[in-house]
Amino acid sequence: MIALFARDIRLATRAGGGFGLGLGFFLILCTLVPFGVGPSGATLALIAPGILWVGALLACLLSLDRIFALDHEDGSLDLLATAPIPLEGVVVIKAAAHWITTGLPLVVAAPIFGLLLHLPAIAMPWLVAALLIGTPALSLLGAFGAALTVGLRRGGLLLSLLVLPLYIPTLLFGAEVVRRGMVDAAPLTPLAFLGAITLLSCALVPFAGAAVLRVNLR
């Protein structure tokens, strides 16, 4: 399992691996929004929590179809399914590797992007905390969607349509944490819900993902 994790991280960081793709997308979004909305700090601060979370969500979506599709194309997935590690473990490891390569860089870089959008300094810790707790759910739910569409050619559109509704609770509570953090009004409540969503996907996705992979590999 550690071998699989190490391989996925190594593949992502080598040429053509897509590491930084999500980060670049996030950067583009956060620099373009002020141009579109106008330079008024008050307006930007108002929409910053929503923009930051929508950006994180779309950046995550961008690389989802790579989770299983590449391994399916070159035959690794068939071989992994016949290997002595459980398919549930493969799903968890793949989701974890996806989070390390797309979610974690976003968490680390989020304060800079918050600055671009005039997010008040008082909300910064809440932004980082919300992304840290919420983005694993994005990777896990995305891994389930990727497992569901693995056999399809150009399954990206279907994958986005399937996964987006699952992302909505995370988006709602995630943006709410940052919004409440700005006005210092009990952000812990939505943060607890965010944590609950992540834990729930942690518990369900490995089994659901492995089950749909088995059906798709037939």
């Binding site: 391989r7 593949l11 080598r14 194309e73 070159d74 690794s76 071989l79």
Partner: peptide, 28 residues
Amino acid sequence: IAYAAHADGLKGALSVAENLRFWARIFG
């Protein structure tokens, strides 16, 4: 049973030894 299909399950970005070491570690 060890299965070998038409596709070899190789990653182009990894070296020959890295590919093989990965599968060796997967099989313990």
